[in-house]
Design a protein around this nucleic acid. Structure first.
Lengths: 324, 324
DNA sequence: TTGTATGCGTTATCAA
DNA sequence: TTGATAACGCATACAA
């Protein structure tokens, strides 16, 4: 691998001059510039990014810590984030921590150490209190961390309202909701709050089943079956996310229930992929693109030490389709 | 940010000794070790990864260049790759190049430059000949690059055979296939070859519609509509991937066709996500996990300068469901 | 307009 | 068992 010095020698110049040409700094004669580029060409020289990173004390790398890009929501979110970050001159380091708090902790420890300039976190593991580390700008997505980390989220309360209201308008009374564990501090809990508020306002009894997001389809199956077995008269389900909603619908048919005649189902997330693959699913659409843009914007502010709000709530919409 | 020297000062030792403690090298008295760890604790010191990278001339970073993690196949593939790579001590830099040859070229230029220790490429853009760059170990997934880059792919020929044969066994004669542009050198073209071979063996006429993978749903719509308009008597479609298959089925209903009574459809990829969301879709399942493991294995060999084969074909299976 | 010398934070060689 | 110093490759302050 040729280095700056090799180029300098070949062009009969000093490292400084070559560096200047590369970074277009200061006064340079055209002749010098040409010589440098020619030497670079001949040697197939490329600057060493790491050395540059060390000197500049920044990497232009942003870490994205999420459960898994295999999930459509996080996949689309990651794609959107990568797109924005790339446009701003950053590259993206990913860490998928699903089902593995140890891995999340490890990523943190490693990423916090000057490997990345900033961090976008949406991982859901519990019991990780390490984010307090000062110095590294962090933005959370749909996840409450500690007080000085800004959160970007969809308007979960509004989403919960819209879904529950729609189910009630469609004549359902016995409506069951699924959500993450109540002790996991996430903005998604506001959906539950909204659901309960709307139910109470209509003198209906809210029932929430708690399902850990980071859990296999099989384990979720157990929980969802309990819904049908413990509440055979359930009329509607407001699910925690779209894949859960679909899984519930498939289970429903095993219990002889037909959607939407027999049972209404509304999901959450409304990714492009799910709306393409299961267009009949009524769902609350999170503005993934806007969330990504906002997260990157906020991160930039943090990087430039500008003040930010604590929370950014982005508007949801309802994909009004056939299942609920 | 405290550095080695700060720790050394606080522990009344030299940088060397502290470094030795951190890397557990050479002889050290327990007393020294304790002092060092105490100082590290007190200062909340973390080694600077970039400085280490510069000295060691490696980053423990692997670049993954794919069209987009928003697509379920690449999403699941990325998740699997990340998982394996993490286990091997690597972190992952992603680049999504969909619809953007410029971006792919840019990523290459940047990643080839010592920013990553190796590269896994599955991007589909044409006209990028830059991968010749020596020195950086590269593995391609489902993509033919140049001769000295090993390719990991599912057994596309077998997949094409299985799908076509099944459609014929189910009584279809007028079978149409969709695939990428024929001038794009990809192992997926072997599906087309298999399709044509099987068709010819049954004295049937193969018809392939070419659809650029990197293109919007809307544009694909145009192409798929042409299938129904130019071949109103089509009996079965073997689609290039599952999302296309679903899109085709939805279009079919607009043309008054019912799947599977009126029209058979088989997809390709068989991701967990699609099989969960659209279980009725018959599809050829790529062994994503095995592909990821293999790719990482091969990459390791390249990193250790061990010889590798040119091509690794992994077995596909058929998800025998209802649409075809 | 160009060159010299220094530092970024780490690891390793060699000497003590 | 420990310490001084050079090297990794680059970019800048300062000098010429």
């Amino acid at each position: 691998m040729p280095k700056l010095e090799d180029v300098a020698k070949r062009a009969h110049l000093s490292k400084t001059t070559v560096s200047r040409v590369l970074n277009k700094r200061g006064y340079l004669s055209q002749k010098t510039i040409d010589k440098v580029y020619q030497a670079i060409e001949e040697l197939d020289y490329h600057p060493n990014v790491v050395a540059r990173q060390l000197y500049k004390n920044k990497t232009d790398l942003i870490g994205i810590l999420l459960p898994t890009v295999a999930n459509p929501f996080f996949g689309e979110l990651t794609a959107a984030l990568e797109d924005r970050l790339y446009q701003q001159g950053f590259k993206v380091l990913i860490g998928n921590s699903m089902n593995n708090p140890q891995k999340e902790a490890d990523y943190l420890q490693q990423l916090l150490i000057k490997q990345v300039d900033g961090l976008i976190v949406g991982a859901h593991n519990q019991g990780i209190q390490q984010y307090r580390h000062q110095g590294l700008p962090v933005v959370a997505i749909d996840r409450v961390m500690n007080q000085d980390i800004p959160v970007v989220a969809s308007d979960n309360y509004r989403g919960g309202q819209m879904a529950t209201q729609r189910l009630i308008e469609h004549g359902a009374c016995k409506i069951i909701h699924t959500n993450g564990p109540h002790d996991l501090a996430t903005p998604a809990q506001r959906r539950r709050q909204a659901y309960e508020d709307v139910m109470h306002a209509h003198n209906l009894q809210p029932i929430t089943y708690e399902v850990d997001f980071n859990v296999s389809t099989q384990v979720k199956d157990q929980v969802f079956r309990r819904i049908f077995e413990e509440h055979s008269n359930v009329e509607a389900i407001f699910a925690s996310n779209d894949t859960d909603a679909v899984q519930i619908m498939q289970l429903a048919s095993q219990y002889g229930r037909h959607v939407p005649e027999d049972l209404l189902v509304i999901g959450y997330d409304g990714t492009k992929m799910v709306r393409e693959l299961v267009p009949q699913l009524t769902t609350v659409v999170q503005p993934i693109d806007k969330m990504a843009r906002t997260a990157v914007e906020i991160l930039q502010k943090r990087l430039h030490k500008e003040p930010t709000d604590k929370e950014y709530l982005l508007p949801v919409t309802l994909w009004e389709s056939q299942t609920g």
